[in-house]
Simulated scan of single mutants.
Amino acid sequence: MQVTETNIHSTIIDILQDMTQEWELELDGITGNTKLVEDLSFASVDIIHLVVTLEEHFKQKLGFDQLLMRGGRYVDDLSVDEIVTFVTQKLNG
């Protein structure tokens, strides 16, 4: 069964809103352009929490190391859209 990018986008936004609801962020809302580190002040532990939450939600390992590492080093930041695209590709093969 194909999962739509719109559904995945909505799911990821909901998860991020749940994770950050008690944080004092000066942000009008989470969009596709929202960056995890720059905009949401994510630390590495928060990124791990997000990865685990997404894999539990979609009931499969998604291989996030492919998204989080480039050229042998960790990426500095990721946007919501980058995560949505990655998860969509993984779920739909």
Rank of each mutant, 00 (worst) to 15 (best):
I13Y: 01
K90N: 07
L40G: 08
S79R: 04
T31G: 11
I48M: 12
K90P: 04
D18N: 13
D77M: 03
N7Q: 14
T34W: 00
G72S: 06
L68K: 03
V51P: 02
G29H: 05
K35C: 09
E38V: 12
R70K: 15
S79W: 06
R73G: 04
E22W: 09
H49F: 03
V80K: 00
G72A: 07
H57M: 03
M1D: 11
L78A: 08
E56T: 07
I8K: 08
I47K: 03
V52N: 12
I12Q: 07
V75G: 06
L27S: 14
N33T: 15
L62P: 06
N33W: 10
T85W: 00
G32E: 09
D77V: 04
L36E: 00
S10W: 05
D39H: 05
E26Q: 13
W23N: 15
Y74A: 11
V84C: 02
L25D: 12
G32S: 08
L36C: 01
S41G: 06
I47T: 14
S44I: 05
F64P: 01
K59Q: 13
T20G: 02
H9Y: 15
Q60R: 15
E82H: 04
T11C: 11
I47L: 12
T85F: 08
L16Q: 07
K61G: 08
D81N: 13
T34R: 05
E24N: 14
D81H: 06
L27V: 13
L54W: 06
L16D: 09
Q17Y: 11
L27Y: 05
F64M: 04
D46V: 01
E5W: 03
T31A: 11
I48Y: 13
V52A: 10
V37S: 04
Q17M: 11
E55K: 02
T88M: 12
V3D: 02
S10A: 14
W23E: 08
L91M: 01
V51A: 04
I83S: 03
E82N: 02
V84E: 01
M19I: 11
T34G: 05
H49E: 14
H57P: 07
V87M: 01
